[in-house]
């Protein structure tokens, strides 16, 4: 017996399983990052001194990364739109582009981390650096997870297009929703860590 509503929507909820699943997952992610943000606020309010982000971190580098991540949000939604319009080749191209943008983001992040370590700025140095490394590190892991997903859908996962195109398109949409969330977290991390 097949599991119902993997592709088509259940009439009374109007949703397929994966769509509901990803939003529930994101609800839990909200609580994860929410807890870290609330820890950040608590620690900052209670700190005697708290540095301005741009005194320690490089705003231009992070601004560049913001643009990279926003662009990757656009490419992933273009991948979905291309598939919706029936073009696998364009869809795959956009998926690859998203993956590459994710990679660029991670490389820039690696450069930033490396630079900090070389100037002796380790997480153990101050609470600001501690929370900076924790938040961006956890966010980076989410980016990495998304990249793995896109690499899979660009490569072996795309075979599904030939047997179940609608199912494959849904998967890209769901992966995209996750990716936008990762982008969304960065939209908050950027001002909170670098600008304030």
């Amino acid at each position: 017996m097949q599991i119902p509503f993997t592709v088509e929507a259940r009439p009374d909820t109007g949703l397929n399983n994966a769509k509901l699943g990803i939003w529930l997952f994101l609800a839990s992610e909200v609580m994860l990052f929410g807890a870290l943000f609330s820890s950040y606020i608590l620690l900052r309010v209670n700190a005697d001194v708290w540095p301005k982000g741009h005194e320690i971190l490089s705003v231009p580098v992070a601004a560049f990364n913001t643009v990279v991540l926003i662009s990757s949000s656009v490419t992933v939604i273009m991948a979905w739109a291309s598939l919706k319009m029936g073009s696998l080749s364009k869809g795959r191209m956009y998926l690859l582009l998203t993956f590459v943008l994710g990679l660029v983001f991670m490389c820039v992040k690696a450069y930033e981390y490396n630079h900090k370590f070389h100037t002796g700025l380790f997480p153990s140095e101050s609470t600001f650096l501690a929370i900076y490394f924790t938040l961006t590190g956890l966010h980076g892991l989410h980016v990495l997870g998304g990249m793995i997903v896109f690499a899979y859908f660009w490569g072996p996962g795309s075979k599904m297009w030939h047997s179940e195109p609608e199912h494959f398109t849904n998967r890209i949409e769901v992966a995209g929703v996750y990716w936008h969330f990762v982008d969304l977290v960065w939209i908050f991390l950027f001002p909170v860590l670098y600008l304030l």
């Binding site: 620690l43 380790f122 609470t127 501690a130």
Partner: peptide
């Protein structure tokens, strides 16, 4: 489980940082 466990996960990550990276959360 969905909404209450993530804050503990956050706390666990912070404590791991304290223990492994020498932070003082």
């Amino acid at each position: 489980l969905l909404l209450a466990f993530p804050p503990l996960e956050a706390a666990g990550v912070l404590q791991l940082m304290d223990r492994l990276a020498g932070t003082s959360f």
